[in-house]
């Protein structure tokens, strides 16, 4: 069984610090890590490889330092790595990224299964998996929590839903996006990682020309969506004491929460209150 895993190197967003004075994001010194969901994708692929005597290729698009996540993947037991790196790829939205990854996968050739993490923590879009699947004309199953059964022709998986799950059978080749529930990833083997740092390691680097794309199809120039503005939501503690009888106090609190900005949870509260009012 030939398996391809798509991974991404991301800034560790849980460590993000804000500049106290300007309120802007401090990007310097932010650690780059293998995207957490992708680690589960790698583990799933390696487990399948061990069970089916398969072969796993890991692919990542990113700057040269993204070589680290490929090396880590090899430490986990992946057979070979391909780094898609070119300044032309920079600034890509998910459309341009899925074109690049799709092209690279066509270049690799035959595959039975593509596994991705559900989403990357820097963008949280969860779009790359389905977009690559559509690019390659293969079926997809997202939010996979368990691979129940797999043979040469099909795979049966448990797909997580908000209020339960469904069991889905898909023809192969197919693309799966997995969630953290699927497994507990192993820690990479130090010996395999050391070997993967050597020149003779099976990691290739491909640029735009290698996968046969023009600069207009990829990166910022090939993107259909664009970030036109960013801002850091500011917050200051209100430090307000709400007084009155219990009923009124609670009502006031819920209303204040509902009016608060920048929080989904608050908006959910707000939505509930508005209905009560209507």
């Amino acid at each position: 069984m030939d398996i391809i895993v798509l991974v991404k190197q991301v800034p560790n967003t849980t460590d993000v610090k804000l500049d106290e004075k300007t309120g802007s994001l401090i990007r310097e010194g932010l650690e780059s890590i293998l995207n957490p969901d992708d680690r589960h994708a790698l583990e799933a692929a390696v487990q399948l490889k061990e069970a089916t005597k398969g072969h796993v290729t890991v692919v990542s698009m990113g700057p040269p330092q993204a070589i680290e996540v490929l090396t880590e993947a090899i430490g986990m037991g992946v057979d070979q790595g391909i780094l898609l790196s070119d300044t032309a790829f920079a600034g890509a939205d998910t459309w341009a990224t899925s074109s690049t990854l799709g092209k690279a996968i066509q270049q690799i050739g035959k595959f039975d299964l593509i596994i991705c993490g559900r989403q990357a923590i820097d963008g949280d879009t969860a779009q790359i998996g389905p977009q690559v699947a559509d690019y390659l004309h293969v079926p997809q199953v997202t939010y996979v929590a368990e691979i129940d059964n797999i043979d040469e022709k099909s795979v049966i998986v448990k797909r997580r839903l908000e209020d339960g799950y469904e069991m889905v059978e898909s023809e192969l080749p197919a693309l799966l996006t997995v969630i953290s529930e699927i497994n507990k990833p192993r820690y990479p083997d130090v010996g395999k990682m050391i070997a993967a740092c050597h020149e003779d390691a099976s990691i290739k680097t491909w640029n735009a020309a290698d996968i046969g794309v023009t600069v207009h199809e990829v990166g910022l120039a090939g993107s259909l969506t664009h970030v036109i503005k960013t801002y850091v939501p500011k917050f200051k503690r209100q430090g307000e004491i709400i007084e009155g009888d219990t009923k009124a106090v609670v009502r006031e609190l819920i209303q204040k929460l509902g009016r608060s900005e920048g929080s989904t949870a608050c908006k959910a509260v707000a939505a509930a209150c508005r209905l009560e009012a209507s």
């Binding site: 459309w95 779009q127 997809q140 993107s223």
Partner: peptide, 25 residues
């Protein structure tokens, strides 16, 4: 942006060749 919407939207966007923004607030 439910588990179904986030499965369907990217697939549709790629199919009809349009950009897509996820999880807007």
């Amino acid at each position: 942006a439910t588990h179904i919407g986030r499965d369907l939207a990217p697939r549709v966007s790629r199919r009809i060749a349009v950009g897509l923004t996820a999880d807007c607030t």
